[in-house]
Design a protein around this nucleic acid. Structure first.
Length: 223
DNA sequence: TGCCAGGCCGGGT
DNA sequence: ACCCGGCATGGC
């Protein structure tokens, strides 16, 4: 059977509705948040962003003017604050030095090239790059995070050992290249993953995707 | 109270 | 090419 990627989306949206990820926040805040949220609960990121806001530093040049130590102290609630302070600065360096601190100029470069440039930033991996492209730039670049992996593996859509690029490609090949769709799908996968695919326990009871599971239930080892 | 969160990097085999 | 540990706060 062909993987019901679109059907899964429809079920998730029907069950959960719009998730409103990164609603109303400007692209710069999204870019900062994309680094801060690495392996971290979003509520912790909110505290860090609030600190930055109070310090008047939610602006590229202002934030770039801080030392790593100052930056680290402000983003402390987000966890991994020492490494993230450096990563954030590396990303800001690209934005400020190469793109004159302008998100708009940055996104004027072709998405494929911009993605490559983001990946060259020390501390920006594929998921962070895609999150920036999608949520800050409206570029239809699917964010294949750990939950996309779990859901895909459990449903037998992909082998468990599929890598990031394969998961991303899998979804992109089966969906129209619409940023709003990618945006919502990613958020919905996280939502359903948290409620039903957490760690090794498959709580398929009441999962909106349960009807789409192969015979015999979820197929995965670890996830 | 332990487990986990919207990753990524570096070092060792 | 893998596998693994480090990084850290805060909520359930």
């Amino acid at each position: 059977m062909t993987a019901p990627v679109r059907a899964a989306y429809d079920r998730l949206f029907a069950a959960y509705g719009a998730q409103h990820w990164w609603p109303g926040e400007g692209p710069f805040e999204v870019l900062v948040g994309a680094v801060l949220v690495q392996n971290t609960a979003w509520r912790n990121v909110e505290k860090a962003l609030e600190n930055l806001r109070e310090a008047g530093c939610l602006e590229a040049r202002r934030l770039y003017s801080l030392s790593v130590a100052e930056l680290a102290e402000l983003i402390r609630p987000a966890g991994y604050y020492q490494v993230k302070a450096k990563r954030l600065r590396n990303l800001l360096e690209l934005l400020v030095e190469r793109y004159d601190a302008s998100i708009e100029i940055m996104f004027a470069t072709p998405p494929d090239r911009l993605r490559a440039e983001l990946l060259e930033v020390h501390g920006v991996g594929p998921e962070t790059a895609d999150a920036i492209l999608l949520y800050a730039g409206g570029v239809p670049s699917f964010v294949a995070d750990t939950y996309a992996h779990r859901v895909s593996a459990r449903h037998g859509w992909l082998p468990f050992d599929a890598d990031y690029g394969q998961i991303k490609e899998f979804f992109e090949e089966r969906l129209p290249a619409e940023p709003q769709l990618y945006n919502e799908y990613h958020a919905l996968l996280v939502r359903v993953g948290k409620e039903h695919c957490k760690s090794s326990a498959a709580k398929c009871d009441g999962c909106p995707l349960a009807p789409l599971l192969p015979e015999g239930g979820p197929l995965s080892q670890e996830y």
